[in-house]
Design a protein around this nucleic acid. Structure first.
Length: 416
DNA sequence: TCTGGGGTCCTAGGACCC
DNA sequence: TCTGGGGTCCTAGGACCC
């Protein structure tokens, strides 16, 4: 039988901060998101005070003061560094590991005999604690989904938990609300509850065909895994990224074009930097802007650019606006036109150009023309400045597009 | 007043080709 | 006025994850 472990770092960001602040052990601690917006990591003590994941800081500020909660702004560089060290340590102890996220990894422990499994895991846990000062939990079962379930119960006990016996698995599945299963989110939960499926065990017993119909293959795979059959294999080598995004919510509304342009240009620089780190090339770039999603009407606009078009040999051919954007432009207060112009500016941005095969492909005039056409199509509607709350730049990458694209990263001409 | 950021996968439906 | 069928590729949007 396969034995798959899920290692999860407990309250990861909080645990990192505590390494440098041992006085905060057993005290409530919270790490906030960008702009100190909301809680993204909570110590157990903070959880017990009722603070929810993602809760905005201004909503729990009073509680924080009253109970003397230690508050930290996030320090992702530090957390990533801790993560790398922990993963390296785990890697040195097992034949196969899949680093799933910054704070989680799946390990293949099939080689470990059942009677030594607990001590093996306990030892891993102790090592991470000893060398890095970080607490982890380990759950072991026969599939990834079940390992996730097991880890859930590991957190409630001593930090190591093993479930391999089917009867025992069923017992614990009966105790687990269906929404706690990996891959069952808000929407599926609502649907499943309406159907009377409220525990993991009931989902396990649900007819696969019906699940497939209602929840697509994704649901079907979950049910398969709950039944102890693998549908998600461990994947050791992570493929290269398919998308790179740099996005930010603004601390206050942005209402001028200059401000917006400035923000987007800095996103582009960062995105291009990441692209180079990955040694990849961009196929497409998109920009979106959003008005405040908590406002009465929330507008969203998304623009895409395809600078590399195989058929026309690198000629930039179109700017498209998504359906939502098309709908949105019929509403006032949207940066429709301005966002388009912004995109054009990006094309001449040196960071951006560096990520394409051929600078000559970026002809501003051509893009201007396309944009003009687009504007004509949607009428000379007056577009006012609106308040933009969030913006992003994303780059998508696809494999090299044709045999002609044999250029290596280093051969790409640098832009002066 | 203040509400994160970065990803993946799946599907329906449109565009396009022969 | 009638108006193929099958295949592939692409995109937007939904759902979910940490």
């Amino acid at each position: 039988m396969r034995k798959i472990a899920l290692v999860d770092i407990n309250n990861f960001y909080v645990s990192c901060e505590r390494v440098f602040r041992p006085d905060l052990q057993n005290k409530p601690v919270i790490v906030l998101s960008n702009n100190d917006g909301c809680a993204i990591a909570r110590s157990n003590e903070a959880k017990n005070l009722g603070i929810k994941m993602g809760e905005p800081y201004f909503k729990f500020k009073e509680i924080a003061q009253k109970f003397d909660i230690a508050i930290f702004s996030s320090n992702y560089t530090l957390y990533q560094d801790f993560s790398n060290r922990i993963m390296a340590l785990l890697k040195s102890q097992v034949p196969m590991i899949e680093v799933y996220s910054i704070d989680e990894a799946f390990l293949d422990l099939t080689h470990v005999s059942e009677d030594t499994l607990i001590s093996f895991c306990q030892n891993l846990k102790d090592q991470v604690r000893q060398y890095l000062g970080i607490p982890i939990s380990i759950g072991v079962s026969s599939t990834k989904t079940l390992a996730k379930v097991t880890n859930h119960f590991a957190k409630k006990s001593e930090g190591v938990f093993i479930l391999l016996n089917e009867k025992e698995i069923d017992t614990f599945l009966s105790r687990l609300p269906v929404n706690e299963i990996w891959g069952i989110g808000r929407n599926h939960t609502k649907y499943l509850f309406a159907q009377g499926i409220d525990t993991a065990f009931k989902l396990k017993e649900a007819p696969p065909k019906w699940i497939r119909q209602k929840m697509s293959v994704v649901g079907e795979r979950i049910v398969t895994e709950l039944n102890g059959k693998i549908s998600y294999e461990l994947e050791e080598e992570s493929d290269s990224k398919k998308m790179i995004t740099v996005s930010r919510s603004f601390p206050k509304d942005v209402t001028s074009y200059e401000e917006l342009e400035c923000a987007i240009c800095s996103f582009i620089e960062r995105a291009a930097e990441k692209l180079r780190d990955e040694k990849m090339l961009a196929q497409k770039i998109g920009v979106f802007i959003k008005t405040n999603r908590f406002g009465e009407d929330s507008y969203y606009s998304n623009f895409q650019l395809a600078p590399l078009d195989v058929a026309s040999h690198y000629t930039p051919t179109f700017i498209t606006a998504g359906k939502k954007a098309l709908k949105a432009i019929y509403k006032p207060n949207l940066f429709y036109k301005k966002a388009g112009i912004c995109l054009l500016d990006l094309c001449s941005h040196k960071e951006f150009q560096g990520s394409f095969l051929c600078q000559a492909s970026l002809k501003k005039e051509q893009l201007m023309l396309t944009l003009d056409k687009l504007n004509q199509r949607y009428d000379k509607r007056t577009v006012n400045y609106g308040a933009v709350d969030q913006s992003a730049v994303s780059i998508t990458q696809r494999q090299f597009l044709s045999p002609h694209y044999t250029t290596q990263w280093n051969d790409i001409p640098k832009v002066k």
